[in-house]
Nucleic acid binder design. Structure first.
Length: 247
DNA sequence: AGCACA
């Protein structure tokens, strides 16, 4: 048969880690990881988020889920999604993540399979560029993220006029925060979309802040279902970005 | 553009 070369061109076999590139390189690592966690935790439990600032790895990140179905859904829903003014490109990662191998019991220390990082001479590189403790199996990724770093204090993030992201993940909430709406979006339109989900209570918009809305549900299970159903939904040119509102 | 495990 000759149908076996179809899916091995630039494709990688499905697995529980997604590889993201075309990320905005101006965003600081710590914030980037938090925002990725905020956006991707709706697809399932996240074991780890990795990003590096070296030349070879800027603008890229790995998000490790605890199962590959979550990773598939994340790719389907979020590939090409606008994030810090650039569209994320998402694929399955090429190789298995260490956290996963460790859980498997198949982890082989890095020095064994590859030795890089040992060029002669001692270069003094910063050996702890804020990799927030996203290490262990966090039941909710934001716990580790929040626990580590003090709540910001640094400038927003881009000089731009249209923030389209929270600076940190919010825990599940019955109230949703909707961003990236066309400025002329009417509350009624959102109500029509969200009221098809069980538990819908109301839509709130603020005239002085166009482009965003708060949508309240009776409980967070119900708000989560609506979020998953409508995430990335396109209104005219804009893809809605839905996260949990901050408490 | 660039697939790692700080």
């Amino acid at each position: 048969m000759e149908m076996q070369e179809a899916n091995q061109r630039s494709e990688v076999s499905p697995n529980q880690t997604i590889y993201i590139n075309n990320l905005n390189e101006k965003v600081k690592l710590d914030e980037l990881k938090k925002s990725l966690t905020a956006v991707f935790s709706q697809f399932g439990k996240i074991l780890e988020v990795l990003a590096f600032k070296t030349l070879k790895h800027k603008g890229q990140a790995w998000v490790v889920f605890d199962n590959s179905a979550s990773a598939s859904t994340a790719i389907a829903k979020m590939n090409d999604f606008p994030f810090y003014d650039k569209n994320m490109r998402i694929q399955f990662a090429k190789t298995k993540s260490d956290v996963v191998s460790k859980a498997d019991g198949r982890f082989v220390p890095r020095e064994k399979r590859k030795r890089h990082e040992e060029k002669g001479g001692k270069k003094k590189k910063d050996q702890h560029h804020d990799s927030t403790q996203t290490g262990m199996a966090i039941n909710s990724a934001y716990v580790g993220l929040y626990g580590a770093a003090p709540p910001l204090s640094q400038v927003p993030y881009l000089g731009g006029a249209k923030p389209n992201l929270p600076e940190a993940p919010a825990p599940p909430n019955n109230i949703l925060f909707v961003q990236n709406l066309p400025h002329e979006t009417a509350p009624m339109m959102l109500q029509n979309m969200f009221s098809q989900y069980l538990g819908f209570k109301e839509v709130r918009m603020i005239e002085t802040k166009p482009g965003i809305a708060f949508v309240e549900f009776a409980d967070e299970m119900q708000s989560t279902v609506a979020m998953q159903g409508l995430q990335g939904y396109k209104i005219q040119q804009n893809q809605m970005l839905i996260t949990y509102a901050k408490k």
